[in-house]
């Protein structure tokens, strides 16, 4: 599973990082870091990552087909 992050759309609400701290984090400037950019999300974090994509309030996260 790969996830695309639309950084222009991201407003740093941080709900993804609450749901999947292993996958997403926000720095002090509210810039989102996606820890598996260009790689597959490891199996053990997949379900948390899906929930994170699902709760993004501005739909900046997408699971790639």
């Amino acid at each position: 599973m790969q996830i695309s992050v639309d950084h222009a759309r991201c407003e740093g609400h941080g709900l993804c990082a609450d749901q999947a701290p292993e996958v997403f984090s926000l720095d002090d400037d509210a810039e989102l870091t996606y820890h598996f950019d260009g790689a597959d999300v490891p199996d053990e974090h997949r379900s948390a990552a899906r929930v994170a994509v699902n709760v993004c309030p501005v739909a900046a996260l997408r699971v790639l087909p």
């Binding site: 407003e11 740093g12 609400h13 941080g14 400037d29 509210a30």
Partner: peptide, 9 residues
């Protein structure tokens, strides 16, 4: 204005 409303801000 949205940047003023994020949890971090």
């Amino acid at each position: 204005v949205a940047h003023r409303l994020t949890p971090k801000a």
